[in-house]
Design a protein around this nucleic acid. Structure first.
Lengths: 178, 178
DNA sequence: ACCTGAACACCGTTCAAGT
DNA sequence: ACCTGAACACCGTTCAAGT
């Protein structure tokens, strides 16, 4: 029942809208309505719409990094299982719709693009590391990791008319690759 | 020197703007300025902005199909070379910037999304066919083709912070896959 | 410190009127 | 058949004023 809002309330609200109504719905008007506040209030917390998007993206980037670390720190998790966990993460529709939105923003906002690029690089590093542990040479590992991560990005982007892979197919694919 | 414009002139102009100034620049104002005409004129040719985008996307889709057919109809081209040609097509920056724009539109316009999905499916079919010719079982071919095409989409989307593969790396990758 | 409310610029869209 | 020009709605942004 706090009538005053913090920056976190705004990013929370933005994530709500993103999940419920998609990218197109995230405007200042719609968001203010969602938070029960007038438009001008937004500009006390953020310089502009881009700053809000950047803040949302940074939260997603932090989440990504946390997930990567949790996969890596479970040392008993063999590298194949780590790859599997990362891949299956993509299949979760809830987080995928957020990710799609961020990648769409990245196209028109450099700040967002920078944050997304950061997260992609982190994922790439993890995948490459896992492949090296599996006995691939560093060159091979780099090329294959690129293929896998680009595929993940392409899949996350989701506007493809292609069949979405099932869990079984992901396993089959990893079998072919490693 | 025709002072009157046809629908093709508008899609041509849109493609110009897309290549020169990127997605963000393609608005009705900017486009009318580019064509030396006033805003209202646009609406004689198209129902709305989405219709223009759809028309542009349809041209790109036709180009894609033509390219696929030319690869396939060169019967002496062995399947590996066909895969190579399709892959290298992605590295061409000029067409990539257009493709990026279309995929961004697809996110917010269902008509565009439909056309893009069509093109993706056509590419998928070609890749799968090439892999089968190379001796892969139909299941394997499907999964691998999915991986390759999704990777192509991810790459085309281009906002990734990952290193862009070189021609040599594409060859190395195809060597690993086939 | 946080919010309101009015104002402005910009852009997509409509439409009556012109040639 | 194709275009102009004025009008309108909508949205991002600013800012002085409120609590």
């Amino acid at each position: 029942m706090t009538s005053r809002l913090s920056a976190t309330d705004w990013t929370d609200g933005a994530l709500d809208l993103l999940r419920i109504e998609g990218v197109a719905a995230l405007g200042i008007n719609r968001l203010c309505e969602h938070l029960g506040v007038t438009r001008g209030s937004f500009y006390w917390h953020f310089a502009d719409l881009g700053a809000l998007k950047e803040a949302v993206t940074e939260r997603w980037c932090a989440d990504t990094r946390t997930a990567l670390e949790s996969f890596a720190s479970l040392d008993r998790l063999p590298p194949v299982e780590r790859l599997r966990a990362m891949t299956l993460r993509l299949l979760d529709e809830d987080s995928a719709s957020v990710e799609r939105a961020l990648r769409a923003w990245a196209r028109t906002d450099e700040r967002v693009a920078g944050v997304v690029a950061e997260a992609d690089l982190a994922v790439f590093g993890s995948v490459q590391g896992a492949l090296v542990e599996l006995g691939r040479g560093p060159e091979e590992a780099r090329v294959l990791a690129g293929l896998l991560v680009y595929a993940g990005i392409g899949f996350a982007h989701g506007e493809a008319g292609l069949p979405r892979p099932t869990v079984a197919e992901v396993d089959r694919l990893l079998g072919l690759i490693v």
